[in-house]
Design a protein around this nucleic acid. Structure first.
Lengths: 215, 215, 215, 215
DNA sequence: CATGAATGAGGCTTCATTCAT
DNA sequence: AATGAATGAAGCCTCATTCAT
């Protein structure tokens, strides 16, 4: 005999999950747009289409909510990084793939950048408290290490490249450009987010990193 | 005895200047520490050792004060960049000098990074409103262009390098590392600001940029 | 197999009784600790180990719950007073017994005092609404009247003593000392609840009341 | 030459003082009526006829305001006790005077009782934090000691009476009756605050205390 | 009988800003 | 130039209570 899960309780559970997910998504957008201090709990509730009180019911307070958003944010990017399968590609292609993924991900997830900035404004306090910080380490780093090693053995890449430094540098080249695009656009008097400018940036990034790696 | 008006009024002027400067410095620290939304006018007054009302007297409101801080911040870095005299150096040394200056400046002025992040969180609204935005363009860019051109002609550097892209990339490599040092430290489980780590990062940055430029 | 309805329903009834008693005890402690306004329905549920909704199921709302607690509190002390059997003792012993009982009861039931204070802060509104107020009249008063009369006839006690006034005074001497022990301890700079201090107080109370009564 | 205090600044100061006094009086009434948890900052502001924000400006938060009210309350009664001049009276009269003063003071200041109850509900935490607790010790105690000693030497009073215990007992007899008058009235079915009942209580108190003291 | 999810009203407190001198 | 007093709006959070099973 098949046990019938009470549809009622299942739906209830799903409601709870759905409510939490709604809040989390709404909070992510609000924090991304206004930062931790500038975010408004009222607006988060409104964005989520739920009662404000419910936020406290599930997430205790603003700080904890922010922390939950950060954790979710990291989980999201790590999950996508896992799909990259860089090990299957020849070294230069793998590096190019990582650069393009990073660039695209930041473009598709502008909230990632502002959330990270907010987290760092608060000295990563929320991350430090999140006992799972180390789990957020990118799975790409290890793969990148083997890619670099393979490239070196094949004679394509230079040796002595620290994969962590390289990973950080790839992120840096994309992140800084996008994070500061408004300021830079104002200063340089040209729109850095225009399609052409974007293509040029990606191209430049590839040149810099591969120009550096390739011997 | 005749009371001399002039020195008194002059002194008063200097007091006024000093007060404004105090407020500006206090505001810079406060905004850097807490962001625009997180900053407190009360604390700024306290930091400046002056009455809160005076801030409004000189700077109208919080937004305008933030704008004034940003402008000052840009003026400060541009002023130091002017002293670089890259044109006097041979191309690789000039580039290395720029990288080291950037790195050092960010290290000596951690507030620069968080202020810039705040400005961008607000989509550079405060900069756009500042009629002097274009004046904030770095004087280094032009010099860098000539340096790159000279390097190319001398056969040291590759050609086709956009000085703006390169300038942005140099800033990016330093900025991202420092801006996200807390988060990265938590994730990698090691202190990215320790002296050794800092030296390694600077070395890596030089290698990437010069490895890319040099043919 | 036949399912027996009766024990089940009986058990359920006992469960219901037990739940109500749990809630009542939890509420008594919570109200005693924080007063009516300071008490939290959440905490009462938690203390009772039961769902908050159940409190409303059994007691309608916070006010009614408080009233129920008060009634129970009075029933409890009256029940113990009934066991005193003062009529069996010679007058001075009977009075001493009452004093000691009062003192002990307040010491054993510190919640009695704060609950009474809360009730009076609300001008005994909850008591006035309880149709059974008069039933809460102490059974001791009548006994005390006969004791006083007997003492007078025997020549031990003075005449003209109103048993209600005396009863109130005995309660007063114990109640005030214990109710305000924290304040008094702070002011006098000594711990009024230390064993020695407590013994001295009881002794003093006996002396005052018997010194007054005895001729 | 007479220095003229700027009327402006003096008035300003008086405004500040007056505002604080208004808030304190309003808070005293509100806390007396509803207790600490039941009191509403909004209502206090309204009672004081001042902006709610001002309460925080002068008193920081609700707890601190409560503490300030308590301190004021103690200062008030101590100040009146100072005027008693018991030392000038013959011992029985002095004691009677103290009893009557206590009774009258509680009747004229019903807020005194509920405030004290509130303070004790919170275990005198606010008093303990008030470094001036010991200063709140009644000046009457010492006088009472000399009165008792004088009475004993004159042969009117019994010996071995602890003035602190006696002082507490006198307060107790009045306090309990008034503090619990609502509850007691409901239980006994008669109005304990009616003029006749009040006179009887005062008379009883005098009889108890003097009956006890007099030998 | 029992419970997790949800809510509207309201409470304490904070904030940028202005007033009056 | 400088300041203490004062304010209205709004922010975070809590509370008693109800809903839906």
């Amino acid at each position: 005999m098949v046990r019938e899960t009470s549809p009622a309780s299942e739906e209830r559970l799903r409601d709870a999950d759905r409510s939490q997910a709604s809040i989390l998504a709404a909070a992510r957008d609000e924090f991304a747009e206004f930062g931790l201090a500038g975010a408004r709990m009222d607006r988060i509730a409104e964005r989520a289409g739920l009662n404000k009180r419910l936020i406290y019911y599930y997430f205790e307070d603003k700080e904890k909510l922010f922390q939950a958003v950060l954790e979710q944010t990291y989980r999201d990017i790590r999950e996508e990084e896992m799909k990259l399968r860089l090990a299957d590609l020849d070294p230069p292609t793998a590096v190019r793939r990582l650069i393009e993924f990073t660039w695209d991900y930041y473009l598709r997830h502008p909230e990632f950048i502002t959330l990270l900035n907010s987290a760092n404004l608060h000295r990563a306090r929320h991350l430090a408290e999140s006992k799972r910080a180390r789990e957020l380490n990118s799975p790409v780093i290890e793969t990148l290490a083997t890619v670099l090693e393979r490239g070196r053995r094949e004679g394509t890449f230079r040796g002595g490249v620290d994969p962590v430094q390289l990973y950080v540098s790839i992120a840096a080249l994309a992140y800084f450009y996008l994070s500061n695009s408004h300021t830079l656009s104002a200063i340089f008097g040209r729109d850095l987010l225009a399609p052409k400018a974007r293509a040029e940036r990606l191209s430049h990034m590839n040149e810099v990193i591969l120009g550096y790696l390739t011997r």
